[in-house]
Amino acid sequence: MASDTSPKSCADVAVVILNWNGLDYLRQFLPGVLAHSAGATVFVADNASTDDSVAVLRAEFPAVRVLENGGNLGFCEGYNVALGRLGPEFRYYVLLNSDVEVTPGWLAPQRALLEANPRIAACQPKIRQYSPDPATRQLFEYAGAGGGYLDSLGYPFCRGRLFDTLETDTGQYDDARPVAWATGACLLVRAEAWHALSGLESTFFAHMEEIDFCWRLQNAGWQVWYQGGSTVFHMGGGTLHKSNPRKTYLNFRNGLALVYLNTHPAELPAVLIGRIALDGVAALRLLAQGQWADCKAVLRAHWHFWGRFGYWRQRRRKFPPRLRLSERAGTYAGSLVWAYFGQGKRKFPELDFEK
């Protein structure tokens, strides 16, 4: 029997937008979320904003429920605290960035996917670029695109986006399929699975936290999917621009933690050695390009990861990795870095795999 995709079926969905001084985004995108999320309850979890976000929400958006976190807890802990306050009436949560434009019917197909298969714990829609330019809006967006994948060394990429190369959406990724990870820009997750895994890894603070969460889901026996029957548009870079050294630091530190926490014991030594070597190459490349602050961010990321190795080891023991590379959905057995920079492969189909 087909799952119900009517608006009333979304009454058990909580759409939660994390906000920190994002009043302009809320005014721009929140009306669309309210208009196109019929049946769901919309929350804004505020990380102690100083731009009058809370006052404006209460005055201009009375339909929105406001959750005040009491401090800037970051993306990870901000969501952990906010979702921990929701009641049992919500079977599904949506983690939605404040700079996302949703479309009519964006929510129901994702919920229907999880309803149809109780093994699916999380999914994402198709993510395209938000822009006033119609041509740019046809491009996939960095954060998720047509579904998240990992290569053999744990480097993340997407269908529709390899490094800085973006594909135009021509309907090539309109399917629904298992993936390695679903983007935190618009992540629908089963409440049961969220709480079973204790939510996001708070030490990540931001960046790659959803990849870690989705990898842990797979290790725990759940599935993660992409639903191409739903589309949203993401502005991106609203908090940290991709060229910000702080973002470079978080991406490299969290990337190293990501593979350490989740890689199967038999494969971990080779993966760690490979990551350290390629991170060193990346640091040298940044130095050669005159990006000294970003180069230092890479070095600092490794210093801080190894400095807290005891903590990461404890977390790995709490959520032990169980899947080998060949057993994980959405995993490319080769090296994305070599395929892209060494072989000149710029689009997902050129990687010669479907898994």
Rank of each mutant, 00 (worst) to 15 (best):
M1P: 05
D4Q: 09
A11K: 14
A14W: 06
L23S: 06
L26R: 11
L26I: 15
G32D: 15
A38E: 15
A40W: 04
T41M: 03
V42F: 05
A45K: 04
A48M: 13
S49G: 14
D51A: 13
D51P: 14
S53Q: 09
S53L: 07
E60R: 13
F75E: 01
F75I: 04
C76A: 15
A82R: 05
L86Y: 12
R91W: 00
V94Q: 03
S98L: 08
D99L: 07
D99S: 08
V100N: 05
T103A: 01
A112T: 07
L113N: 01
P118M: 01
A122L: 10
D133G: 01
P134E: 03
A135N: 00
Q138P: 00
L139E: 03
A143H: 14
L150F: 15
D151W: 08
S152K: 10
Y155R: 03
C158Q: 11
R161M: 12
R161I: 08
T165P: 00
T165V: 15
D169P: 09
D169Q: 03
D175Y: 06
R177W: 00
T183P: 01
C186I: 10
L187W: 02
L187H: 05
E192N: 04
L197K: 09
S202L: 02
T203S: 12
F204T: 11
F204N: 03
F204S: 05
F205E: 10
A206Q: 06
M208F: 14
I211Y: 06
W215S: 14
W215G: 00
A220T: 02
W222S: 01
Q227H: 15
H234W: 07
G237P: 08
K242D: 13
N244F: 05
P245E: 12
Y249N: 04
Y249A: 12
L256T: 12
L268G: 00
A270K: 06
L272R: 04
I273M: 00
G274D: 04
L278W: 02
L287A: 14
W292T: 14
V298R: 07
G307R: 09
R313A: 15
F319S: 13
L325S: 09
R328L: 12
G334Y: 04
S335D: 09
V337N: 06
W338R: 12
F348N: 02
P349F: 05
P349H: 11
